[in-house]
Amino acid sequence: MANATSDAAARPKSGTRLISLCVNGEWREVAVRPRNMLIEVIRDSIGLTGSTASCESGTCGACTVLVEGRPVLGCITLAVECDGKQIETVEGLAEGEKLSDIQEAFLDQGAVQCGFCTPGMLMSATALLRRNPKPNRQEINKALEGNLCRCTGYNAIVDAVLQVSGQDGVKPVMK
């Protein structure tokens, strides 16, 4: 195995940058390399592990977070691009112990099973409901089309969005 002297060669090359991100309303300074993706920085440097990492290629939506209010795929967004920006993650949705309406609706509708897609799904739904408080089914489908869920078959997720927006008479199915 490499010894302590030769380990000096393993010293990270420079290129590290200090960036600041306002995550869920809290400014954080983090050192990142240019190649680091936003999801790595959120999960590993800042330590907010609610956002999940699944495909590393922008195909599943599990790592969706909001940057300046817009849903962004954390696994294909460079962290350095987000310097100085507002980031929202699933950890920021509840106010203290009080869950947001969409979080409650996911529980009411059984829209959560394994839960791995849930953080990304919630962020996409949150962004949708902010810009369009009464989305129709087509608009819901469009907003959530980038978020894969292998467990629920999606119907319960659509119902959760309809429940929050008070449409189609959707009532909680779980108590």
């Binding site: 609610g50 869950l99 529980l107 108590k175």
Partner: peptide, 18 residues
Amino acid sequence: KSFKRKDGPDKVTGKAVY
């Protein structure tokens, strides 16, 4: 009865540990 998931709150807040 359709009780809500016990693990639900942890899963919608990002607290569930994978």
